[in-house]
Amino acid sequence: MTKESLNTNDILIRAEQLKHAFIEGESKVQALRGVSFEAKGSEVTAIVGQSGCGKSTLLYLLGLLDRPESGEIHLKGRPMAKATDEERTALRNESIGFVFQFHFLIKELTARENVALPLRKSGVGERQALEQADELLNRLDLGEKAKRYANKLSGGEQQRVAIARALANSPSLLLADEPTGNLDSANSDNVFELLMKFAREKDIAILLVTHNPELAERCDHCIPMRDGLIV
């Protein structure tokens, strides 16, 4: 037993020796070669490293979108390898929020409808889900644009809507893959501040992939990666 695992209560997510590879034609690309770390609630952890070092791959594994080749992920103390696909899907809805580099909103829906989606899935009625979505959008300064279609918003606005959606179900873990990569510095600063604020306020563990060293500096922790390993 390591020292850290004594106070597992605070630890929201723990990765143990995660390995993952992609088969491409004849060759095998080893994207992760044994990554172990842990993250706690209300802390923001930056994941940095060169392009292709495995940051996104790691995030998708932690977000239960993919299963690692080997290794284990403990989410709230529960081992995820054994969990069924249904359980993992339910956990994604209840406990995990995603923000991607490109906003990944559904453009046929309005901002508030996009934000209401995870709530609708978890069984909240339509009206209440939309009300909660409006509230969240208000807090992100998007109250006036709640009823606009997603593709009629600026990049920064879309990214904030994506954050609102990720937060809608009050997740305990928020995974953000270069959420500011597509934004100018003012917008990127704004989004980053929002993430910091929500982490503290709602006791969320945030894992943030970024190429911006300045932002990484401002996070609580920083995990530097190279060639599928933490260095």
Binding site: G63, L65, E86, T89, A90, L91, R92, N93, E94, F98, F104, L105, I106, L117, P118, K121, S122, R165, N169
Partner: peptide, 16 residues
């Protein structure tokens, strides 16, 4: 397929 992927990442099941 992009929209479907989003919905799945949010927690919608294959059945949904």
């Amino acid at each position: 397929n992009r929209d479907i992927a989003i919905l799945r990442s949010i927690g919608f099941t294959p059945r949904d």
